[in-house]
Design a protein around this nucleic acid. Structure first.
Lengths: 197, 197, 197, 197
DNA sequence: CCTTAATCGAGACGGTACGTCGTGTCTTTAT
DNA sequence: ATAAAGACACGACGTACCGTCTCGATTAAGG
């Protein structure tokens, strides 16, 4: 039974961290292909070339496993901070990036987790290190340096407002934001609040 | 085992609308007690004193059944529109009401539905009749009449902004908003955008 | 997945006794092919075209299932009683028949049962109706009628002695008895004890 | 977790024969406590304070391990040969001894072995050195010397007959023989065949 | 006496089967 | 005709044990 061949008989048996990484990668692939509701432990075990016992030794159940797989990816490698020279285009750039980093599959996986792991609030998944927004901090600081905004306009609320509205949109519609939606957030809400006049 | 007495042997067998209503009520009770993840068709059948065949004759699967149960309750009887005489307190009243109308259990049920019924975006569950906000329309119109806001400030975005931010908060944290959070939304974001100056 | 075809989609779903009979037949087939140690619940379920849940609804575990399958066959339809006209050949005929009715597979299944179902003594499986031997009763009675044996020689012990020794042989060696072994039992032990002299 | 103290940290690590003996002893203890069906390799490893690798370096599988443990004990130190001065009491003594040397647990372990190690016939376990009966040889020879039996009555069959019938009884009922059963074997079968008349 | 090779103890790993539970279908009986 | 009851086929769950493997610690034996 020379099965699915994802594990070269020449390579020695994987263990510890290496094995764990391979498993979590398999989870993410299953999430993309099957979606959270159809992801099974057997499926993950087979795809990662291991056995269910190995999964259950590390994670108590399906939800914990998916949770771990998502956590690995949530603190995205501090993405490029847009630097166009004006606040409006910087913020638009930030919001556009959210379209890509919050895939449909990932969003639904998050919903599934909340449904199953009663206690886990979404926030702790989305903001594992507390509610901060390093990208926006940089963007706003640059705008302040250029004199576009007053320094005292940089409040916690103003750091998260655009992404909060964008996330709300993404969560409700489970589809990428339109350019109009992004423009509405920036032009009708954000800029009027922070720009000097 | 003459169980929970949900069906008196004296009363004749229920049918049609009466039966359906009893089933959907049982679904909501199970949701409250068990949560969406642990709600089972057998459980609903037993609680409502009927059989699974009856459920499947009406709804295709678990998700559709829960969906139906929630829809019955989503268009809440148009709640009292606050009328305190000033915009700030009216909006705060609206947001406070959201704390009560979006129970934890209901929120998680919505997440579960999105997870299982791949296609259903949350928005269609929350806004079955399109994105409108009749309460805020009334509140803002009154404020315009009083001269607190300029009529041209009443844009679609301004009708939904406070509740969007509040909903975002509720979705992320799965817990009632604090008074501080409500004040932040109103004072740091909303009023600065709409109040005449 | 139009699987093994043992269940015509045209025929309606089997239930009750009919289903049960098919399952026990499948168990016996698995016993012959796989042996007791390698017989699995999944295997039986697949071969009989049903599911494990159905098996477990009727029998608590593997051993109980096999036990039921064997019981159905143990009270073999009262086999032909040899009637050759002399006692020696009659008894030899009886012992030869045991070679066929106690297959290797069945013997090992019995051992397996005793191993797993701690309490069940083999005797209750082999003699579900108490230790009797109707065949030998007839054979001996005929011999007495012919005057070969004295009527008072027909004791319980003499009814079971040949088959006891034969069974001992079959249990120890798990292989059919040789003709020499049969002759030894009859000529060295049995006839000297019962024949008139 | 200074566990069950089966291996004093002060005592040096066991190897070779000493280790092997301890393991087989642990096997027999597990057999007594758990029975064959519930004996596990992990259990034996833990009880003997070693690891599974050590077991599998010496025995190919569970059955081989148990087999080895039983073999150590089967050739019981040539038990006392009864010498009462008459054949009847000597034979009864031999049969009574079988009640003690064939424990229930050991018998069931033998069944388990046959079930799993398809090829191993029970006989080779019970008679590792070929079908002989040294005890009965001595008993019968003494009887011949006393003139109770004719020398030509000492045939292979007569050496094993009583123990064969006794073993058959023990295997079927998994319980010690009654005195009546022993008397029946001796008085109704054995003595009539061998005693001079 | 110190190195070196072998074995030990511990436990992770890849599998297979277990027995349970939930889904969605189907059959039967009663109203 | 529909309701209530419940069996049926399916598939995933989480557990247990098997037999293999890797790893570091220990120890007997040899230079």
């Amino acid at each position: 039974m020379s099965t699915s061949g994802q594990q070269d008989k020449l390579k020695s048996r994987r263990r510890g961290k290496e094995l764990e990484t391979a498993i979590l990668q398999a989870v993410r692939e299953e999430l993309q292909e099957q979606g959270y509701a159809n992801l099974t432990m057997d499926g993950v075990a087979e795809r990662s070339g291991t056995s269910k016992a190995v999964l259950y030794r590390r994670w108590a159940n399906r939800a914990e496993l998916v949770l771990a797989a998502l956590r690995e990816r949530v603190p995205l490698p501090l993405e490029e901070v847009p630097d166009t020279g004006n606040l409006r285009d910087d913020v638009i750039g930030v919001l556009r990036a959210m379209n890509h980093n919050n895939t449909q599959a990932m969003m639904k996986a998050l919903y599934g987790l909340v449904t199953e792991l009663g206690a886990v609030p979404l926030a702790s998944l989305i903001f594992p290190d507390g509610r901060q927004n390093r990208t926006m901090t940089i963007v706003l600081q640059r705008a302040a340096d250029r004199g576009e905004v007053a320094p005292e306009a940089i409040t916690p609320r103003m750091l998260t407002l655009p992404s909060d509205l964008a996330r709300h949109e993404l969560m409700l519609y489970n589809t990428p934001m339109t350019e109009e939606m992004i423009a509405s957030i920036v032009d009708e809400v954000y800029l009027p609040l922070v720009l000097k006049r």
